[in-house]
Amino acid sequence: MRDYILETEGLTKEFRGFVAVSDVGLRIRRGTIHGLIGPNGAGKTTCFNLLTKFMQPSRGVIRYDGRDITPMKPAEVARLGLVRSFQISAVFPHLTVLENVRVALQRERGGSYDFWRSDAVLRRYDDRAMELLADVGLSVYAQAPAGTLPYGRKRALEIATTLALDPNLMLLDEPTAGMTHEDVDRIVALVRRVAQGRTVLMVEHNLKVVEGLCDTITVLTRGRVLAEGPYAEVSRNPEVVAAYLGSDPSVSGGSQGEVAAHA
């Protein structure tokens, strides 16, 4: 077993001259929760899109479990166990909550191209789907269309759907964005629980969440890695404080004072 489940070297993405991500070298240690933070426009989501192959990097190499995945397609890396969530809650709104999870469980069959077969064959996944829903507290919603769920519950459903694939590496894009305090606490507890036995890489704006959850954090600004290490160490780094206070005063209320206090 390798120490690092995901490594990048010189990862760069340019959009017509604008460098969104520049020479990023990430190393995600197996079995940890790794946070990716940085002010708005720092390139965090672009980074995510590159790692999950939703975008092709201009330069650089991405290695997953020692294997070069740079030329792969997004569906292929998902099959290798590297599964992402999205910043905007990504559910299938007209499918029921149960069906949402089942579509992910259905991946186990391989390609579902059997258009001649009744979807009754999918019922064997119902029990497992209900277990996953119970795990994120959505059992009572099972038969409701996913689109009718309140925002926080949609995020929980998204995590359940991601978990259905039993990923080795979960990439969560701002799992607590736009949530109320109670919702945030719920999701934090959930992420901590589901991270058992896997690796999590998360983009997060809320520094309280990052501090509570992440073993290691990487700070990005203007597409570059500014600092990397445990939260306590990184939050004392004067450059990080400057990046946060200097360029993005709107960063998660309450937490920035903390960074400043450490400085």
């Binding site: 299938f92 499918l95 069906e99 259905q106 991946r107 001649w116 999918l122």
Partner: peptide
């Protein structure tokens, strides 16, 4: 109403999400 149709619906509803679940 087949397993195939279920994936089709998922694609119609949210294609990037279907991709991220490993569907080509």
């Amino acid at each position: 109403n087949s397993p195939f149709g279920q994936v089709l619906t998922a694609i119609r509803e949210n294609e990037p999400r279907a991709t991220s679940l490993g569907y080509r």
